[in-house]
């Protein structure tokens, strides 16, 4: 066991890790940040996406020790300072972009990374960027719509309004 320290959602936090401890495991079990979910073991579902040093990565496919000293953002740190939902979170609620909620943390973190890179992505760009995030509930319709809305685009014309 070694001690690993990282800045998580702006706060310095430490915990114990073995060589094999995954970042997702460290966040969930050592730091009790259970909003980051694990939905697969092949690095594909994206429920575990967090930001490390500003980049969206799959925390189930990164060793905790690799993140020693890093700045980590998780779903728990996304709301506004007053606790209200941020723009992306609010758009997901407004447009019913989640059902069971399990993939949602990864979707929100991936959407945040996308909008940082590309503030007004097209539908196709959003669908492409979500390649590594699997949702079984929504058929993606309202997730894509929510991300478009979060980027300030008019989604009124999208089918099924």
């Amino acid at each position: 066991m070694s001690q690993v320290t990282m800045t998580v959602n702006g706060k310095e936090m430490s915990g114990d890790a073995e060589g094999r401890t995954l970042l997702s495991q460290f966040l969930r079990e050592e730091l009790d940040l259970t909003g980051t979910h694990v939905g697969c073991d092949t690095s594909q579902c994206g429920a575990c996406v967090v930001h490390v040093n500003g980049k969206a990565i799959k925390s189930c496919t990164m060793l905790a020790m690799e993140a020693d000293g890093a700045s980590v953002e998780t779903i728990e740190g996304q709301a506004e300072a007053d606790g209200s939902l941020n723009t992306i979170q609010q758009a997901f609620q407004d447009h019913h972009g989640l059902q069971c909620g399990f993939c949602t943390p990864g979707m929100v973190m991936t959407a945040a990374a996308l909008l940082k890179e590309n503030p007004t992505p097209s539908e196709a760009e959003i669908r492409d960027y979500l390649e590594g995030n699997i949702c079984r509930c929504t058929g993606y319709h309202n997730i894509v719509k929510a991300i478009m809305a979060a980027s300030g685009q008019d989604v009124g014309a999208i089918a099924a309004e």
């Binding site: 697969c40 579902c45 959003i126 492409d128 979500l130 995030n133 058929g139 319709h141 719509k145």
Partner: peptide, 16 residues
């Protein structure tokens, strides 16, 4: 696994 079982992704479907 998801390496061989093809789950629908966002780019496999249109707006409905």
């Amino acid at each position: 696994s998801y390496m061989d079982y093809a789950m629908p992704r966002a780019d496999d479907v249109p707006f409905y």
